[in-house]
Design a protein around this nucleic acid. Structure first.
Lengths: 196, 196
DNA sequence: ACTAACCAAATACGACGTGTATGTCAAATT
DNA sequence: AATTTGACATACACGTCGTATTTGGTTAGT
């Protein structure tokens, strides 16, 4: 036994983030009670406010975690494509599909921006955005794309993708609409391609 | 004098919506106190709950109003362009510029989706979306665009535009970034064009 | 081994905000 | 003129957040 102090603290942080993830996803940020949430993992609000400062702090931590997972997965998928260009399209499609997850939607797409402000100001620096911007820059160097501002292109691409996901998720039969969304996304993205 | 009952009621609705617009824009939905808001126009929460049901109801009314104004303005601007295609690009640019207004941003882009859910489910039916979808459909008929699902295209376009606006607004010097955003938007949109 | 400083977490507290239930008074109706 | 309707005000109950204070175990120093 003889648990170090820091160990249990780290464990508690992990527990709280997990609980936050669940509560925020199920009830939404506003309706999530910090009392319930902490009690669910055998703690009290004291632990929360000590570790994360306030309710927003917990949300920020949760968002960072999810964002990181998304970026990693998208990168993995993008790397599996043959071409770099194909890779970026695949990444975009991956974002759309990931954003169908209610957890991602509620926390990252809806409550995140509303509570934390624009993603580009987030502490986590939004790994997803950074990743797609890198992809754009690489493609620019290779002359695959028309000259554009990489940050702008990345923002618009991810914006389009995430918005597409919201649309798909809100539609009556998502499985029917998803392919349309992905197709439209790729058509749109092809506007960036340099003329052959 | 002898004011009709319906007259004063309509006046009060207008007052409350105006107050809501101001409060939601300045403080955000969550931090806006309904007590203050109603007191500002010489009423109480009683009037609010009678007219709009609940806090969300007021937000919905405010969003509907702003959305309508935006759609009208965009249509106006789009009609001024020579070409239909140019018109759609102009509309997109107009959305980006309008979304720089803090009021639009806070209420329609951030709090609106978080509190009311996806725009396509909004009671107001999001005039902006409907309008751009119409434009897309017209262009499709004329064979200007590659075959795409019009709803999907509209969603992605408006998503990209609005996201671009968020980015511009959050940047350090918006006036410098805005042209980049508009340029990137138009480049992206050109992906929809049928090959010449 | 004993004590003292420390600190993560618990507990207690104050302020506030929403939604609802009840009351009231002017306007509409007959 | 009496009655009914309904728009709005008032009062209350309940829940929540954030902070100030306290507690008890952990670490370090002698």
């Amino acid at each position: 036994m003889a648990r170090r102090r820091q160990e249990t603290m780290e464990e508690n942080r992990v527990k709280l983030i997990a609980a936050g993830r669940k509560a925020f996803a199920e009830k939404g940020y506003a309706a999530a009670s910090m009392d319930e949430l902490t009690a669910d993992v055998g703690l009290t609000r004291g632990a929360l406010y000590h570790n994360f400062g306030d309710k927003r702090g917990l949300l920020a931590a949760v968002v960072t975690e999810i964002d990181g997972e998304m970026a990693a997965r998208a990168k993995e998928i993008g790397a599996g494509a043959g071409d770099h260009w194909q890779g970026m399209l695949a990444e975009g499609a991956a974002y759309i599909e990931m954003a169908l997850d209610p957890e991602v939607q509620r926390i990252v797409l809806l409550d995140g921006p509303a509570v934390l402000g624009d993603p580009s100001k987030w502490p986590s620096q939004n790994s997803c955005l950074v990743a797609t911007q890198r992809s754009v820059e690489q493609l620019l160097e290779k002359g695959v794309l028309k000259p554009v501002d990489p940050e702008a292109a990345a923002r618009l691409l991810s914006g389009a993708a995430l918005n597409a996901a919201l649309w798909v998720a809100a539609s009556d039969n998502p499985s029917d609409v998803l392919p349309k969304a992905i197709d439209a996304f790729q058509t749109l993205a092809s506007g960036l391609l340099a003329a052959r």
